[in-house]
């Protein structure tokens, strides 16, 4: 059997993999040496001072305090150095580059669904271009899952009540595992897939393939279908706040606090609108919890993100009795 049939080290195919692997190998070297020293010491001492008729009893020995202090202080310093190194790598894993390609993922028992901003949908397969940061925004439809790309050394839990993100920049083309890492029920071990890392040109070709219009377009249709535009007009006359350009802005709330209008705020405001009501508006919006699927939520949010504060585009509204 070839060694390649049972790798002892995973393929390193992302920009952070080299840092994670570097730290991992450094720690193996460090802790391995220390462990071997301890093992060697144990066996050396156990053999050298084994019980013989002439050493029925141990020799008295006062412990030098300096020795104790040494093996308190030195490990502490080493451990803290490991902490710093780990945190340094962690920041690289966590900090999402601003120019990242956006992809959305939805976990459900027991499959991964991916949506591209261009409108493509995939199940258990994800196509991404090489050498370009990819940010995945994800939520779960049911229990907690965890999206893991071993070859990229990144994972993050997928929660049912809010969006979480992870990002990677693939550095190699090819096919790599996707696993669900958080136990999620019967077919947990079947909740797997492949990420296909492609050359940019190939990727463009793939993108040109069938889609039902971009994510934002799909979201716009939903926006109409759900009659959101009835209240969320674009001219500040509606009963709901103007949504154009709201993303990323500070929104003052009715209770005096304020929030940044990020994906999570938009998501919460659709599902459970009364949780954080924008200042100056009544809590009259119906809750869409259970009525809008996670995938549709992604479409709606994608649309909201593209809305432009237009001058005269909004359809005229029949004013209703307040």
């Amino acid at each position: 059997m070839m060694l390649s049939d049972f790798p002892l080290f995973p393929e390193a195919a992302s920009s952070v993999a080299k840092y994670v692997d570097g730290l991992y190998l450094a720690l193996i070297l460090l802790t391995g040496t220390v462990s071997l020293l301890i093992w060697a010491a144990i066996f050396y001492l156990a053999i050298k001072y084994r019980r013989r008729p002439d050493n029925e009893l141990a020799q008295e020995q006062e412990p030098p305090a300096a020795l104790e202090m040494t093996w308190i202080v030195v490990p502490t310093i080493i451990f803290l150095a490991i902490f710093v190194a780990g945190a340094w790598v962690y920041f690289r894993i966590q900090r999402v580059p601003t120019n990242a390609l956006e992809v959305y993922a939805t976990g459900r028992q027991w499959m991964w669904k991916f949506q591209h901003t261009t409108g493509q949908r995939e199940i258990n397969t994800l196509h991404v271009p090489v050498n370009r940061p990819v940010k995945i925004t994800m939520a779960s439809e049911d229990v907690i899952h965890s999206l893991w790309f071993p070859a990229f050394r990144v994972k993050n839990d997928v929660l049912p009540n809010r969006y979480r993100t992870l990002w990677f920049q693939a550095t190699k083309t090819g096919r790599f595992h996707i696993f669900c890492a958080e136990y999620c029920g019967t077919l947990h071990s079947g909740m797997i897939g492949w990420v296909e890392v492609m050359e940019p040109t190939e990727y463009q070709k793939w993108l040109a393939g069938g889609s039902e219009g971009s994510l934002a377009t799909q979201g716009e249709q939903l926006f109409q279908k759900l009659a959101c535009a009835t209240c969320h007009t674009n001219d500040a006359t509606g009963r709901g706040p103007v949504l154009a350009g709201i993303v990323g802005k500070q929104v003052p709330l009715a209770d005096g606090h304020s929030v940044i209008a990020d994906d999570n705020y938009l998501r919460e405001s659709i599902l459970n609108p009364t949780a954080k009501v924008a200042a100056g508006f009544q809590p009259i919006m119906p809750a869409f919890q259970g009525q809008v699927s996670e995938e549709d939520l992604i479409r709606l949010i994608a649309f909201v993100k593209t809305m432009q504060p237009a001058t005269n585009v909004a359809p005229p509204q029949q004013p209703r009795n307040p």
């Binding site: 730290l23 190194a85 780990g86 994972k155």
Partner: peptide, 16 residues
């Protein structure tokens, strides 16, 4: 345990 406490490594090996 130190590997797991080191954040950068834990992201990869957590739940493995």
């Amino acid at each position: 345990g130190l590997f797991l406490a080191a954040l950068g490594i834990d992201v990869h090996v957590h739940d493995s």
